[in-house]
Design a protein around this nucleic acid. Structure first.
Lengths: 229, 229
DNA sequence: GCGAGTTGTCACGCAACTGTCACACAAGCT
DNA sequence: AGCTTGTGTGACAGTTGCGTGACAACTCGC
């Protein structure tokens, strides 16, 4: 995982260029296309972290793109911000109906769009908003894909990394094994509940440090949590 | 499991999936169905903590589902949020008439729905809404699964935790042993009434503090209660 | 194709928890 | 006081839940 990937679907070249520039400036990795069909292709290739979607675009209409994104397995949960023409109230209706997360009516200030994109990413996936998560003596940089404990770099496997990231996105909170499977493995996974134990153990082993207490707390008959202190 | 259980009745697949994902993210345990009859079955099986109900659904209509939920013994007080089409004023009236607790007109932002669900849950069952319960010098954080007395963390077994949570959700109220068994152990459990005594004792032992009086009150020939002071 | 790293599962053992009992004790009644 | 009824308590056997090491299958870069 690197910079958050953003897919911008906008057919006004001037606006597209402006937004692309601004988002790149914000540290996003941006893909731009004026065309709905191409947008779907790009999204299918590799699911972006967020989609900014103009209502009136060439090829497949914005609403249809929205609907198909929701149907795609890998893109079903990707947040979508719709851009609609001013006063097109019906668009709002259908936009949210088909699962857009937020919408902006033109004209809007680029700043506001960026603010909303940041807000949504922070809410959905704090680690993607370019933040370095810190809990106690642990810190996790999702962009650099690096974890340190008390400044020392720690090596973790991919799964342990995602597991730790999820814990650090919700410090102190207790998650059941089922919730962890949903969040870290994906809700479709058919994995033994007890497998979580094993990865918890590997995570513990990975981040253990001399003279420091284990920040991963076992809550009997409930699950696990990452302790803030 | 401590996650609040939510039943979502929505026949638009895209919206349903979006909402399911959002609520999962908020820590809810979600069941989804597009069908009114199935919704009733699911609710009858195990009563959810809250129902989000679309007005226009397959099978039995939303309003009918609402009415039947209110008739069901176990589902009578389950809060219901109705989703209605825009401007369908009559629906609002009838929705509230039949006992919906709140309604949202489409389009709505997922954020707003989540806010209302949280608000209602806070009212009905504070411990489920990520709230920290406080009674006297005791405080209980259901999400972090932590209990403190006068700021000091207290260790409790799973059953004692649930027992205390139940008391703190209804401070001052006296519960018979039978009621406690229903609420804490589950209505199906076939457990000796006197076993409650033992767990009350373990709870007392767990939360006892130097120079502080025991907040668990024994009401002879009636049951137990947690005293507010 | 090969080796290092990663992943999911299992079986075993231990520690914590649970439900029950018997008996001691307290509270109300006549 | 005596009696009756209801509650506190310590002990205990059975159960549950979790940690752990081992292992085969798998992935991926080379």
């Amino acid at each position: 995982m690197t910079a958050p990937r953003l897919l911008l679907v906008e057919d006004d070249p001037a606006l597209a260029e402006l937004l692309e520039f601004r988002f790149r400036n914000e540290g996003y990795q941006v893909q731009v296309t004026p065309d709905g069909d191409e947008a779907l292709l790009l999204a299918a290739e590799e699911a972006p972290d967020l989609v900014v979607l103009d209502w009136m675009i060439e090829g497949t209409s914005g609403i249809e793109v929205c609907r198909r994104l929701r149907k795609g397995k890998t893109t079903a949960h990707v947040p979508i911000i719709m851009l609609t023409a001013r006063g097109a109230e019906d668009d709002k209706v259908r936009g949210l109906d088909t699962g857009a997360d937020d919408y902006l009516t033109k004209p809007f200030s680029p700043r506001e769009l960026i603010a909303r994109v940041n807000a949504i990413l922070r809410r959905i996936r704090p680690a993607l908003a370019g933040e370095v998560l810190t809990v106690g003596d642990l810190s996790l940089d999702a962009v650099a894909h690096k974890v340190t404990r008390s400044g020392k770099v720690v090596a973790l496997g991919p799964t342990e990394f995602r597991l730790l990231r999820h814990f650090m996105e919700h410090p102190g909170r207790v998650f059941s094994r089922g919730q962890l499977l949903d969040a870290v493995w994906g809700s479709e996974s058919e994995i033994e509940l007890r497998t979580v134990d094993v990865h918890i153990r590997r995570l513990r082993k990975g981040i253990e440090a001399e003279g420091a207490i284990d920040p991963v707390r076992t809550v009997r008959s409930a699950g696990y949590s990452l302790e803030a202190n």
